[in-house]
Design a protein around this nucleic acid. Structure first.
Lengths: 155, 155
DNA sequence: ATCTAGTCTATCTACTGGATAGACTATTAA
DNA sequence: TTAATAGTCTATCCAGTAGATAGACTAGAT
């Protein structure tokens, strides 16, 4: 089913990098592309979209580049994914941000599928809307520490 | 993002109908198609696939048709969706049933995105693998009752 | 035997995800 | 003020998939 597109995944990685370097000035597309192994031209489109959505800011000319428009704790993963992949809901009829009726549903009010899908939506938005870029970086730090405590004894 | 395809949605509706008529003999594709407003030829493919996966049984010839291979409480929504749409995981690198490494991930063990997506996967599989067809029908009954208790006073 | 109904293969169209090319424009440092 | 730099935008492109349809084939019931 694979709900997250490559686009969003690339975006998350690029934004994580920008969050790590928050307040250290603009970062070049070329640099992000190289460090995160993201096709440069594709990344351009992604960053542009994120800028239009108010998540990123940019600066042109020499010394320019992209930077977070807000603090890393003020940007949620849910917001990022919604910006690029649209609504988080598994089916249109349970979307909060882009509701659309199922044309063939005999009666939406008593549809069991819908109720279950609503639960799924609630569960995923709860996670993704709570989790900020800052939270995600914190997770990475913890994972890093954990790995260092459990070294792999191999040559 | 819309994780559930029409195929799965059609399947859920058809299976709900078959669950409602469990132990009442085979049901014709044509009848399922008509009652649930599902394109007949498309439904054929879906039912065939579900049969190959051991979720449905079929009987040929006059008086034939499709029927549930197991009891409605023994078939989970997760199983159905997996059969038609593949793994429930939002990204391949957190799938239990079809793990695939992210080719460009610098270090999967410390990937924050991955950890969050794991949480999302856990949350959705918890719901979908717990919920059986029987549970879903029960939900519909409850919704029905609820509606009858809150009548709409309109002409 | 023959009718009925499921099975299977092939095919089609439209759409979308992922990606690339290249011209254009704004900024800034020299 | 101009050359270099770096972001912006539009146009495409290709492959794969979703959704759907057609028709021949096969097994079973009566």
């Amino acid at each position: 089913m694979y709900a997250i597109s490559k686009k969003s995944k690339y975006a998350l990685r690029a934004l994580a990098e920008l969050a790590r370097r928050y307040n250290q000035g603009p970062v070049l597309i070329a640099e992000l592309s190289a460090r995160q192994h993201i096709p440069k031209k594709f990344l351009e489109l992604i960053l542009l979209e994120l800028r239009n959505q108010g998540i990123l800011g940019s600066k042109k000319g020499k010394g320019g580049g992209y930077f977070l428009a807000r603090t890393p704790s003020g940007i949620s993963l849910g917001e990022i994914i919604r910006a690029l992949d649209g609504p988080l809901a598994p089916v249109p009829c349970v979307s909060q941000t882009a509701y659309r009726t199922c044309e063939e549903c005999n009666d939406e009010a008593t549809c069991g599928i819908r109720e279950v899908m609503q639960d799924v939506r609630d569960a995923t938005t709860k996670i993704l809307d709570q989790e900020s870029l800052a939270d995600m970086l914190r997770r990475e730090e913890l994972l890093e520490q954990k790995r260092n405590r459990v070294p792999v004894y191999a040559i």
